[in-house]
């Protein structure tokens, strides 16, 4: 019981510190902006540890963070293998293929008004569908290896990427296009110097949405069959063995890689669309 009281104390302490920082004189500095969410996260972690220990919650239901960390550190090599199998082989290859194919389709679609009017509503519709459901079919077709996971990822990322790229390519104004015409620019030159740069914010929005979708596709597809490797496999088998520490470690890996993946895309966006209003600061 004392541990639970400690947890409450920790909450009061952490939140009080945050209140002080957030309303204090230094509230708009970068350090405080970073520190406040970190303190909040650490407080939650601390409370989790204390309450789980204090209430003697069975580790089968919710393991304390320290156990998860220990399990994570112990199984680094296994988890690395899972990471390579699911993230690098399954998700990343599917992501590159799917987004690349969608981008090329968008360039094609953009040349024909009929195609655009036909495919865009269809793409918008498909982007809202539970495409994860095709996972069992694709696993049946392409086997248990990473190829089937990549196929699921391709299907999942294709339509959101297509819709975003097509929307981006029609982002230029009539005035800008007229200017290119007065320069007698060819279709390729217009594309390269005007329309692709203008489409970049949309393309990157699509890429960011797809980065999360890619991981979801790769992990869920493993629930339908996989080699004895991979994050989805690790999660589903470790649950069977009630090894919750391992389950949480696998989830930690997928969360970290999801955030890192998204972060990398966001970083590339910052580099390439530095001119866009949302990145010029000031807000």
């Amino acid at each position: 019981m004392t541990l639970v009281i400690f947890a409450v104390l920790l909450w009061v302490l952490g939140f009080g510190l945050n209140v002080m920082l957030a309303n204090g004189p230094a509230r708009d500095t970068g350090a405080v902006r970073l520190a406040v969410p970190l303190i909040f996260g650490l407080t939650i972690l601390g409370m989790w540890e204390l309450i789980v220990r204090g209430m003697q919650v069975s580790t089968v239901i919710l393991p304390p963070p320290s156990l998860i960390a220990a399990s994570f550190a112990e199984n680094l090599s296994t988890l690395w293998g899972d990471f390579v199998q699911t993230i690098l082989k399954g998700a990343l290859s599917g992501y590159i293929f799917g987004c690349g194919a969608a981008f090329l389709t968008a360039l094609l679609v953009d040349r024909s008004d009929y195609l655009r009017r036909g495919l865009l509503p269809l793409g918008n519709f498909m982007a809202a569908l539970p495409i994860v459901g095709t996972a069992p079919i694709l696993v049946m077709w392409f086997g248990f290896g990473w190829q089937s996971k990549a196929a699921v990822v391709v299907l999942m990322v294709y339509f959101p990427m297509l819709v975003n790229t097509v929307a981006g390519l029609s982002e230029t104004t009539a005035m800008q296009r007229d200017l290119m015409r007065t320069y007698a620019a060819t279709w390729g030159q217009t594309l390269w110097t005007l329309r692709l740069p203008a489409a970049l914010p949309f393309v990157f929005n699509g890429l960011k949405i797809c980065s999360t979708l890619a991981l979801i596709g790769a992990i869920v597809a493993e629930f339908f069959g996989s080699p004895t490797l991979g994050l989805g496999f690790r999660i589903s088998t470790s649950i069977g063995q009630l090894d919750l520490g391992m389950v949480w470690s696998a989830i930690l890996v997928s969360a970290l890689s999801g955030t890192a993946f998204y972060g990398l895309v966001a970083l590339a966006e910052r580099r390439m669309t530095f001119w866009h209003a949302s990145h010029r600061g000031g807000r």
Binding site: N18, L21, P37, F40, V220, F223, I239, I251, S254, T259
Partner: peptide, 24 residues
């Protein structure tokens, strides 16, 4: 306080494949 402490985590959590938690 809520804004500064919760919002970054809400945004980060969008980048996590949450569906993977489902079976657990």
């Amino acid at each position: 306080v809520m804004d500064m402490s919760v919002m970054p985590w809400a945004i980060v959590s969008q980048t996590i494949p949450i569906v993977a938690l489902a079976p657990m």
